[in-house]
Amino acid sequence: MTVHRPEPDRDSREWWERVARGEFTVQRCAGCGADRFPARAFCPACRSEEWEWRAVPPEGRVESWIVSHQPFVPGLATPYVVVLVRLAAVPDGLVHGNWRGGREPRGGERVHGVFRRVDADLTLVDWGPAG
């Protein structure tokens, strides 16, 4: 289930390449050690441009979700659930994805990422209940 393909920018291309290899990463600042998401060149805390990718378990908690009914994306079957997850590795970082729970999410519940291989060139990250 996807119509819009992501269009990586020069800061994020490697993040997507790593997702395609089944790796979920955040950036760790070499200046102050802060982790961040999404991919950016500069650390907003110390403004350092030095950083490295850090693979983390794709884990977090449900911040919110919607059940989308209106056909905003032609060709995409409705309804579908989009979940907003607060990353365990980056407490200030929020990530969106489709829900793979077989039921509606619950506020605050622990979730883990599920890699969804769409085709040879594209892998997305969905979320489902942890454990």
């Binding site: 289930m1 996807t2 119509v3 819009h4 393909r5 992501p6 269009e7 990586p8 920018d9 800061d11 994020s12 997507w16 999404p38 911040e63 919110s64 979700w65 919607i66 989308s68 209106q70 905003f72 994306v73 995409l76 579908y80 989009v82 907003l84 990530v95 969106h96 994805g97 489709n98 506020g107 605050g108 594209l122 997305l124 969905d126």
Partner: peptide, 28 residues
């Protein structure tokens, strides 16, 4: 916007969806 790439592939593209997400967070 660079943020679109993390949302649009999941069918999350429109203001009513975005605001609904924040509204639910407030409800919770």
């Amino acid at each position: 916007s660079p943020e679109v790439q993390y949302q649009a592939p999941y069918g999350y593209v429109a203001p009513p969806q975005q605001y609904a997400m924040y509204a639910r967070a407030h409800m919770l």
